[in-house]
């Protein structure tokens, strides 16, 4: 339990990931679904950033001319978070564009309703 309290950033990110996942499963509104997906992405960034931190060290930008591996935090998670952000932005934009097209066609954002209308359309 004390471990969980020390790793509270990671614990929070896992819970946040769960919240986003639940949003993705339970929401019927497609835009709210993608908000859930974005919450999941954000949880991943929090996890990565937390794993990169080391107590008492500074951000990985040369400070006071010190070149020492024990003076800076780990730079790799920063690069990974950057990749994650770019992919998340692209996926969100693409899926929202698809949702917009669906809305223009069916005049609804409710997934169940869209599925029902699609079936009716196909059945004819």
């Amino acid at each position: 339990m004390s471990h969980l309290l020390t790793n509270y950033y990671e614990a929070a990110s896992v819970i946040l990931f769960g919240i986003g996942f639940m949003n993705l499963l339970l929401q019927n509104n497609l835009i709210k679904k993608f908000i859930g997906l974005n919450i999941m992405d954000t949880a991943t960034y929090l996890f990565l950033a937390a794993k990169g931190y080391v107590f008492g060290r500074v951000a990985p930008i040369l400070t006071n001319g010190i070149i020492d591996k024990d003076y800076y935090i780990n730079p790799i998670p920063a690069g990974l978070v950057l990749t994650g952000i770019v992919v998340s932005v692209s996926v969100t934009a693409f899926s929202l564009a698809l949702v917009l097209r669906l809305y223009k066609h069916y005049n609804s954002l409710n997934m169940d309703e869209i599925l029902r209308m699609m079936r009716e359309e196909e059945g004819e």
């Binding site: 471990h3 969980l4 990671e10 931190y53 990985p60 070149i67 591996k69 003076y71």
Partner: peptide, 24 residues
């Protein structure tokens, strides 16, 4: 999460030779 290396631990597995080489 309980079994992960501690937050901010300088000896954790995430602080490995790849990042250290980039820094050095």
């Amino acid at each position: 999460v309980i079994d992960l290396p501690m937050f901010g631990d300088p000896n954790g597995v995430t602080v490995n030779e790849v990042g250290q080489r980039y820094l050095e």
